[in-house]
Write a protein that binds this DNA or RNA. Structure first.
Lengths: 225, 225
DNA sequence: CCAAAAGTGTTGGCGTTACACCCATGG
DNA sequence: CCATGGGTGTAACGCCAACACTTTTGG
């Protein structure tokens, strides 16, 4: 008895901070099933393709986004999750800084747009559950990893970074403590540059230090404050 | 153009504490490929089967183990990971208390046995990577979740529990601090019973409290000590 | 000179770590 | 009565949270 063949898909939750909130990228489906519905970007894995490569390819094809930080999230395998038959989906989580989040509708997509990640519109398949899990994971990782830094263009100011954390954690943080802790990580590198904008003191610019540890745990440092 | 069909497998890393160390369950393969090699228990997902259900079924069929705590670990999809063709595998992590770890070789298994999880023998497919990832995950979760409690039969003594943590974290813990912190969680429930064995004072027995939170984080409590 | 955001230190409280002795039992 | 592991409290320390004013700039 030979095993059942499956179709294998990848879906990608791309997060960005926009309009002062956490948003995720959705595409309006150009084809059935769920034609016209919003859905996560994604599609079928090709014959000789690695899962992560498939996620990157689909993301690029449907939305034009590339070179994002990407990590595997969870694999969804409910037998009834796709009306076309037996489709399992490996979901990936991505974070896009503003400079890499200019999406344009590509193949299979009638439109692409960022939506409030915590109050998404009606979406196709089980993608609401996928999105919810991604939000949860991003929030959790915000408390012990440097993942949030990747939501900003480099270089960035500490105030910008603090706003990112505040959006992710949904609570205000103390400026002095934030800066103290963030600098203590030695994950940031000071640049020579300043951001001057508006009628106030210019802000120092930082970038993610090349060999910074990804996990704050290693230094025993945890957010929240 | 129709998408490539895949085979979908599940593999399970079952951990147990035995001989004072962390061990994982392996089966000796009865069939090609890799006949005669040790491998993780696992197999193909059936047509209308959920991934977790498949993991439980394969585990039961091959090793006789059932009713274990199970969680999804990671999905491995390297196109060359299986010589039979395009097979992706959703890996699961399970923990077995001594009372549920009496394995016996079942279908497809010439033998089953626990092996040192951190120095496994040569194993089939990419299962060494799967196992390594599982060890890493278990260790990490030991620092902020009550997962380790599930490596013991209930009820258990605090000394037994401490030994589990010490094996997982690979370092000695202070007895008084351990007890203080563990009891502060309110994850444990004191029973009426005592364990008397050997020539010393009997030890109080505890069980995992029914509604205990799974994540210590929620109480702001973290191991290490 | 005013508005606006950047930048900077100290302190009190709390939680964590470090540490040593008595208890209950079986043989 | 001795050996064995079970069980318990406290003090010093270090880390974290709370908190307000000065700096620099543009207009």
């Amino acid at each position: 008895m030979t095993p059942t063949p499956f179709l294998v898909a990848v879906d990608v939750v791309v997060f960005a901070i926009r309009r002062g909130r956490l948003e995720a990228l959705l595409v309006r489906r150009a084809n059935d099933p769920y034609r016209g519905r919003w859905a996560l970007p994604g599609g079928f894995v090709e014959a000789r393709e690695d899962l992560e490569a498939a996620a990157r390819r689909e993301l690029r094809e449907e939305t034009g986004l590339a070179d994002l930080h990407l990590e595997q999230l969870y694999t969804f395998g409910d037998p009834k999750r796709d009306p076309r038959g037996r489709v399992i989906s490996a979901a990936y989580l991505a974070v896009a800084p503003p400079g890499k989040s200019a999406a344009r509708a590509g193949s299979d997509a009638a439109a692409v747009a960022f939506h409030a990640a915590r109050q998404p519109p009606a979406i196709a398949f089980d993608h609401a559950a996928v999105l919810a899990k991604a939000v949860d994971r991003l929030r959790t990782k915000s408390e012990y990893s440097t993942l949030p830094l990747r939501l900003l263009d480099s270089p960035f100011t500490l105030s910008e970074l603090q706003r990112v954390y505040e959006v992710l954690l949904e609570r205000p943080l103390d400026k002095r403590n934030f800066r103290k802790k963030m600098l203590a990580l030695e994950a940031l590198e000071e640049t020579r540059g300043f951001r001057r904008e508006g009628a106030h003191r210019p802000a120092k610019l930082y970038r993610l230090s090349p060999r910074s540890p990804n996990l704050l745990k290693e230094k025993g440092i945890l957010f929240p404050f």
